[in-house]
Design a protein around this nucleic acid. Sequence first.
DNA 1: GTGAAAGCGCTAACAT
DNA 2: ATGTTAGCGCTTTCAC
Lengths: 346, 346
Amino acid sequence: MREERNRQRAVTQEDVAQAVGVSRTLVSFAFRGAPGVSSETRQAILEAAQRLGYRHNAAAADLASKRPSAVGLFLLDLRNEVFVDIFSGVRESLEGARNRLILSVSQSQGTVDEGAMDSLVEARVGIVIAATLFDTDERVKALAASMPLVNVARRIDGVDSVYSDDRAGARAATEHLLRLGHTRVAHVTGPGAEGHLERRRAYAATMLDAGLTPRVVVADEYTQEAAWRAASALLVGAERPTAVFAHNDELALGVREAAHALRLSVPRDLSLVGYDDSRIARLHGIDLTSVDLHALDLGRAAGAAALARLANPGAPPVDQSSNPRLVVRRSTAAPAHVASGTEHRG
Amino acid sequence: MREERNRQRAVTQEDVAQAVGVSRTLVSFAFRGAPGVSSETRQAILEAAQRLGYRHNAAAADLASKRPSAVGLFLLDLRNEVFVDIFSGVRESLEGARNRLILSVSQSQGTVDEGAMDSLVEARVGIVIAATLFDTDERVKALAASMPLVNVARRIDGVDSVYSDDRAGARAATEHLLRLGHTRVAHVTGPGAEGHLERRRAYAATMLDAGLTPRVVVADEYTQEAAWRAASALLVGAERPTAVFAHNDELALGVREAAHALRLSVPRDLSLVGYDDSRIARLHGIDLTSVDLHALDLGRAAGAAALARLANPGAPPVDQSSNPRLVVRRSTAAPAHVASGTEHRG
DNA sequence: GTGAAAGCGCTAACAT
DNA sequence: ATGTTAGCGCTTTCAC
């Protein structure tokens, strides 16, 4: 038993060929269903392979065939469900295709991660689908110039991009709060990398359009804990906002915890809007109003775009935008004074 | 601009060697910091590589060097934070080591996934760390016989195993409920694969020890939705349990939603205990009593075990158990009648 | 329908 | 300290 573990030379196509009494070429052909192999030979080969325990060696195959078959997926943070959904979507659209999917997750929260992207390059993926939120446009363009790259959840001019209209989503979120009667609406976000700017810009623009003063609070990371810290300072004093629109649900939950620690009740004392419409947002007792960006669809579309790019390297850049949707739940309500005003009327 | 995308032949060590005026060997050695290269030559090589834009080709390297450097990680479900934590832990302990980490995620919720494991085999990883919960002991043993394998979050005799003591955790959870005065305590779990049995067994044993009747409800998947469906049937009628211990937080949240839909309040009408101590459990308004199995540590330990196995293939199997910890929050309380009894006393 | 031979980019003895 | 040589397992012309 124990001895078997000692890695005896792996079974190769050569071994299969000898067993069947044909050449290596035929074996190679047989596996890829290439034409030019009689069905009898193919049967014999497949059967012998099975019997001998032959396993295809993807690395060797890629090396020999010059054009790499793997698709790399670069994600920022698996604790954020959006990225998990993107992953699921990409995988789904790669199903059936002959491409392996290699996942690489950024190490660092809040800064550019060279290492994770490098690992994809060194794995010689033929194309990478990347959530490049922390990189500058310039750097992404440079990357895209050196290898096929599909941008997901972000738009960059001249680079294949599959994204959700952040501007529309952020505007909808902010307007929802304004319509409820809030005037002191703050925005909690994270480090201001180029990929993360749309939402805060749209928030600020919407506020200004309404004649109000934007108030942007920047947490030092895109984590609950960082949002908590940032919100703890924001939510005290007479001038504290009556509503907060957070960059995403993760941050919104941090704000929520901070509010509760300060004995502020949501939505009575503070209205809260997140972004992503994660499963947590839907839980009873959380009921977080949030913007759904359909991450699964984004992933599917990105996967399809990658396949298309691989098939046609010369095609013009894809620019595929989709519309997010505001999902109103119970974390938002009219501010206290307006609410009582409403009551009087009611 | 656009033309650059056309994959011109990649820069190889050969190119670097020619540029510097040395042999390929030196270049190869220089990159791996192998001895036998003068520091001047090394400098020149590294610099030329930089200038030419040379990227190491991991696939070719692995192919040439017989002993594969990659570690495969097989995970069941990225939507379950436990697995994300395991991933983080594994990666952490591989940091510094020269091993690439290749992640493979099971496709199917609830059944064995051959494909995902195969992809690891075809990537020719040197060892795989696997959360094999859905496989039979027998199958895992067979796999482990054909290639180095470290079991994580599960114990299998004769196979490297790094796990948390599920029996102790489940017993602690059940006893916590019994001590609160509950007698009708149900257990909600998922499909009964061998890797998932410890908790329900410990629950049942604990109930029997206390002279009570176990009641195990099996959802058809390990998802919130499935738990919701299962719990909807469980939580009606006069004989409905006053407490539920769920296999994990994911299922517990499904039970919680079902309870709320039935207008049962947690913990007043139903006490609830989960398992995993996920971040969601800690949120204000959720406050789920749960068992922390320290998934991050599990991942770290599994990574270390994999490295150790790679370094010493002949060593006896690792059997490393750790103790989970019950974290009591506000989702558990004495059952209604006992609670009022307590009030009288107080 | 089948096979021979070259070579992918790299590592690893074995020279020198 | 540096170079030579032979593969790793596979794909892929190009013959037969």
